[in-house]
């Protein structure tokens, strides 16, 4: 294309003159849509976080930083934040690590029926979390649930717990159910990624006498940095978005112990009609996700997205 990148006069306007169609429909239109449906909502959320508003009344009351100071003293905010972090840890440990191990096992044919299993593990990724939640409500039911029956049959009856009733484990139950539905995604990414790693590097390592552990850690993983970066980012945002399962399975019970930030926003805004405070928690989520993303891209995954 005629692009005068070599020219000092080259500017966006010069480009626009030469490429009217591309500029209009390829740049201006999407940027406008972004401004209306993504940019404006973000700005509005920040604006709203300085007000008190019940969502209906025509007037909003300016309260300055009151919502923020309330948030930092709000017990439920801290519980939710902690739950999001627990969720993130479980998601990184269970679906991501397991997804990698499964992908590796399938690549080295350490498992039978890899195609069937890959389909089975990926399938929950396509399920709505409402369906997944409902399903595990039945399976983890304290009286009629299949899971407890299996545990008892395996002689592990002492592990049987109130999966949703016990406030100490309820959030982990939810995170593991989420992990069950999420594992397929890291697995697919790693499966494709390992397929792109030059096979010769594995052969060479094997001839040098490396075992599977060494090959995973020293041969496969270092060559999968960009895949890991994508997967970890996806996991991160997935954990911060956690909402559906909670809405279906616990609604924050017991005693708000399974609240996460996303659900707190929904509760405060649409049930308690405290839109200002809901917006404040939204801002917290936003800051948190941008901060973590920037931190990770700047350190662990520096350069992983360079094309």
């Amino acid at each position: 294309m005629m692009s005068r990148i070599d020219d000092e006069r080259y500017s966006f306007l010069a480009f626009a003159r030469n490429h009217v169609f591309v500029t209009l429909f390829g740049i201006v239109a999407p940027v406008l849509l972004f401004a209306c449906f993504i940019g404006y909502p973000i700005v509005y959320t920040i604006y709203l976080s300085f007000f008190e508003w019940n969502g209906m009344a025509p007037t909003k009351t300016f309260v300055g930083l009151a919502n923020y100071s309330y948030m930092f003293g709000d017990k439920y905010f801290y519980i939710s934040l902690e739950n999001n972090l627990k969720w993130l840890v479980v998601s990184l440990a269970f679906p991501v690590v397991l997804g990698f191990l499964i992908a590796y096992a399938m690549r080295v044919r350490a498992v039978y029926f890899p195609t069937l299993l890959r389909t089975a593990i990926f399938f929950p990724v396509t399920m709505s979390l409402v369906a997944v939640g409902l399903m595990f409500l039945l399976i983890l039911n304290p009286i009629f649930g299949a899971f407890d029956t299996v545990l008892r049959a395996l002689g592990l009856g002492f592990l049987v717990s109130e999966w949703f009733g016990d406030y100490r484990i309820a959030i982990y139950t939810l995170a593991f159910v989420g992990g069950w539905a999420f594992t397929g995604l890291p697995m697919i990414f790693y499966f494709a990624g390992i397929g792109d790693v030059p096979k010769e590097t594995f052969d060479a390592a094997r001839i040098e006498g490396a075992g599977h552990l060494r090959m995973m850690l020293r041969v496969a993983l270092p060559q999968l940095r960009s895949v890991t970066a994508v997967v970890v980012m996806l996991t991160l945002f997935e954990s911060l978005k956690a909402f559906d399962l909670i809405a279906v399975m616990t609604k924050g019970a017991p005693f708000g112990r399974t609240n996460v930030l996303g659900y707190l926003v929904y509760l405060e805004s649409f049930w308690n009609s405290r839109f200002g405070y809901g917006a404040t928690v939204s801002v917290a989520i936003l800051v948190l996700s941008i901060a973590i993303a920037t931190l990770m891209l700047g350190t662990v995954f520096r350069g992983a997205f360079d094309v």
Partner: peptide, 14 residues
């Protein structure tokens, strides 16, 4: 990467 919940309120208003 935007969490849906953060834009729920303004989108609702829009």
């Amino acid at each position: 990467i935007l969490p849906q919940q953060t834009v729920l309120i303004p989108l609702y208003a829009v």
